[in-house]
Design a protein around this nucleic acid. Structure first.
Length: 273
DNA sequence: CATTACCTGCAA
DNA sequence: TTGCAGGTAATG
């Protein structure tokens, strides 16, 4: 369940391990569908001897910038892990990509559900990604006025609107519930029905829940780990998500679970109106 | 706009 | 054995 804070935590740990290093060679690609090249051989050829310049993040995507103006865009989807380990560490059956580094270590992609994707793109591929996605919620281009306008244009409920990556990029199911709880807004409210005070509260709540989670190095419910295999701590600070039946920490009412747009949604039926 | 496919592990 | 978890692309 990696969302923006988890991907940012992975980015920070990967940056430490990868910047300045070289991909010596592709060691294995057990599930070729993970990469966007037509064959494992083409992928191996494309990354061999490339030096890593930067490790960036856009929404839930990791961008590993190489020295030939190509970028390896990685999406962890639900269960992907980007791990950097000593080459003599045993791999397990969920390790689907192994790349040898120039310092005796390996970058390994571990993903039980094989949903994650690696795609090698040129500059236009990165531009395309940026155009498809809305503003970064923790960036300067995420403004109250713009957010308010985007909500006005949506015909749907506020919860699915927060999950729409073209409205704002990086919020997933956990932080959508957390932001709505903090802003005291019911997930079934029509996006365009929020008054200016509610929009402002939600705008601040989104930034607060994301920043707090980054401070706690992300939420580990099942699979999420950083590049060192370490779990996050934000699961101990959740107010709504996964707390069905437990008392709301504002008013004591049991947290309710409903389904909104096919997604499990957690809320306080008293505080959130 | 909603639903399904992609996958597997795990709980009921 | 069934169904759920969840991000995104593709499809209805």
């Amino acid at each position: 369940m990696p969302e923006l804070p988890e991907v940012e935590t992975v980015r920070r740990s990967l940056e430490q391990e990868l910047v300045g290093r070289r991909f010596v060679a592709l060691r294995s690609l057990g599930w070729p569908k993970i990469v966007n090249t037509h064959s494992p051989e083409l992928f191996a050829e494309a990354i061999a001897q490339r030096q890593i310049q930067q490790v960036l993040r856009r929404a839930k995507y990791l961008l590993i910038e190489l020295d030939n103006h190509e970028t390896l865009i990685v999406h962890l989807r639900m269960t992907g892990q980007m791990l950097v380990v000593a080459a003599d560490q045993p791999a397990d059956k969920h390790t689907h990509v192994v790349v040898e580094l120039d310092n005796g270590r390996e970058l390994r992609f571990h993903d039980p559900r094989k949903f994650g994707r690696w795609s090698l793109v040129d500059r236009s591929g990165v531009d395309e990604l940026n155009q498809r996605l809305g503003p970064e919620p923790l960036g300067d281009d995420f403004t109250l006025a713009d957010f308010s306008q985007r909500l006005q244009r949506k015909a749907t409920k506020i919860k699915p609107t927060l999950l729409d990556q073209s409205v704002l990029a990086g919020v997933g199911n956990i932080y959508a519930d957390e932001a709505l709880w903090l802003a005291k807004i019911h997930p079934l409210r029509a996006a365009k029905s929020l008054n200016p005070a509610e929009v402002a509260a939600l705008f601040e709540a989104i930034k607060t829940v994301l920043r707090n989670s980054i401070e706690h190095r992300g939420t580990t419910l099942v699979n999420y780990r950083d590049a060192y295999g370490a779990s996050g701590e934000n699961q101990y600070h959740l107010e709504a998500y996964g707390r069905t039946g437990e008392p709301c920490r504002r008013c004591g009412t049991p947290i309710e679970r409903i389904v909104v747009g096919q997604r499990s949604t957690h809320l306080c039926p008293v505080c959130q109106v």
